[in-house]
Amino acid sequence: MSERDHIFERIREALRTSAPRPGAHPWDSAGSAGLPSGADFDRVLSATGRTFEENAALFERNSVDLATEFLRVDGRDEALAAVVRLRDREGWKRVASHRGELTDAACAALGLPVHWTGAADDVGVLEQCDAGLSECDALVAHTGSVLVTSRSAGGRALSVLPPHHVVLARREQLLPGLPEAFALLKTKYGGNYPSMISFITGPSRTGDIERTLVLGAHGPKKLTVLLW
């Protein structure tokens, strides 16, 4: 008998005695009352905006608290101009990115040497880049999070290794809350999920020394989100 079978046997043996559901009375039947629905979650979770403008304002407020730089721009050309302004302000010499409609256009506008992820000897080169530009799957207004996956955002390291992560997002990618983000993941990838899915909320942070907030513990010290 394998360890797997041993463990399953022990679990099944243990579950022969049923435990009361939380909040249930001992005389209630011990059967499963099912799992809560999306409506149950909406009732207890934080309220989110109903319109795009409300959610954009919510994302903006969260960004201030989180020290995320949130730039709303009007249209693609203005977004590319904003990326160029970031380059000049931060003094980028070399950036890392991945192939994508938005990132291709941004990297072309930058006119800098670009390291595309996926090439051999990734880590050493990626570590030397001043910024990582990526696309995303969604922005979450309620939490101020950016949703990326290893398929949509150039792998696993691009969004954590360079000191500055720049996210390019389109207007329709802004979602009210986490339930909508998980629903999106299911419809977009259902059955064939990427190997990594990450909600990034603000720059990397720590409070391990006297509970004092410090940005840039291991991952990026800066996070910029561009939305048009």
């Binding site: 996926g118 290893s150 390291a157 909600f199 909320t201």
Partner: peptide, 28 residues
Amino acid sequence: GAAQLISGYNTMYGGPRQPGEADGPEEF
């Protein structure tokens, strides 16, 4: 846990590097 709205990184992993992905471990 930490008096935050949500933690900085919440990440789900389902496997090693998959075909077509830029990086990630060979074995998980």
